[in-house]
Amino acid sequence: MITYEVELAVPETVDADLAGESRTIEVDEDEYVLAAARAADVWLPADCQQGWCTTCAAELLEGEVDHSAAKRYYDVDRRADLVLLCVAKPRSDLRVLTHQQEAMLDHRAANSLPPGRSKR
């Protein structure tokens, strides 16, 4: 089993305990980043946990993830470095900027994709 280091950078502007801080957690290759974060007492936003709703969206600053379990994820998301942490398994060490649902919704809307196009 390979374990990766995942650095979770929480933006200053969000209403969260870790606002403006970073935490590095260990995530196994077959584990989802979101579940690993919550298990490590880092509470990140999520809803469906099936890679559909985008509540858990984050920006991938560095590294590679496997998204194959996502119910709704598009190539344009990948190209924009937007990931869904609830279904993201690490394939390298990672650095991610958390709390990016608004950015994800804007991005989906700009590409005429759900759910952004229905919420903008």
Partner: peptide
């Protein structure tokens, strides 16, 4: 409620 049911379905929080 969204006027267009397609919008309602698109934004549903579950798959």
């Amino acid at each position: 409620l969204p006027n267009d049911i397609r919008d309602f379905a698109d934004r549903a929080s579950c798959p």
